[in-house]
Design a binder for these strands. Structure first.
Lengths: 133, 133
DNA sequence: TATATGTATTATAATAAGTAATACAAAGTT
DNA sequence: AACTTTGTATTACTTATTATAATACATATA
């Protein structure tokens, strides 16, 4: 999986990493059970500090996306796709996006069409320049 | 319109203000053309600094939600609902939420159902405790 | 034993964020 | 003219965040 970081972005590196990995999982590019590079390897590959990678991995672990084994490194959780409950984050994030869209006069059909199109085409590169949270 | 701030939240006050006003517009509680309190009045009412309110108002202005007139204060833009183009923010925010949902095994129907329900029921109080961006 | 994994610790530097106090400029009101 | 109200600009101060670096540690594998 190709990771592209923007060092000039106002999104922190660890968050760019986190986002791109989430997108990779969502798009299917990263399969459940698939291993991620070691923190040292990834840090060297993209020219950043080991602890920055570790920070991204730990966020992903706490969010339930990956599991980390001291012996074998990090991998995408095997049971990841069995967790279908809508998260608070989804509800709250959607509330704000829906309010913004509605405020600007978008009708429901258009909004839902965009939601569907977005869900169908998860694009790993779409978040490069943008802040997630 | 009732504004409720959480001073313990990790969401800055100006962003809580901005979010709640957007929700107010989206829910219809604030109509187009309706005036907002002056920065001083609102600051006194909720016990915060004038510049914090000003910061929120300026974000809303830059995002196209309100217009600010030095003489008459801030009001919701008259032509707000004529702007139907999906914003970049919507596309990028949705991409991430969709990726997160898909990664955790949510199917499209469920995702879209939540999207629709959220769009139908914009709830001003839903974002109190959460970070927007 | 050597190597690989993630983690913990401590330090440092730079930047950004958040809030506040005060003064200013512009326009309306009396 | 004087006063009030509007948003804005400036400055200051404190705190939090971000990223890096250098080590050291614990654990398991080859």
């Amino acid at each position: 999986m190709i990771l592209q970081l923007n060092m000039s972005s106002d999104t922190p590196i660890y968050m760019q990493l986190r986002n791109q990995i989430v997108m990779g999982i969502g798009s299917g590019e990263l399969k459940t059970g698939e291993g991620l590079p070691s923190v040292r390897q990834l840090a060297v590959d993209i020219g950043i500090n080991m602890m920055t990678v570790s920070k991204a991995y730990n966020i992903l672990k706490n969010e339930g996306y990956i599991e980390i084994d001291r012996r074998h490194g990090a991998k995408v959780r095997e049971d990841l796709d069995s967790n279908r409950k809508p998260t608070e984050k989804l509800e709250y994030g959607l509330s704000l996006l829906a309010a913004e869209s509605k405020a600007k006069g978008m009708d429901k059909e258009t909004f839902l069409k965009i939601c569907e199109k977005t869900f169908n085409d998860i694009n790993t590169q779409k978040l490069k320049e943008h802040r997630a949270c």
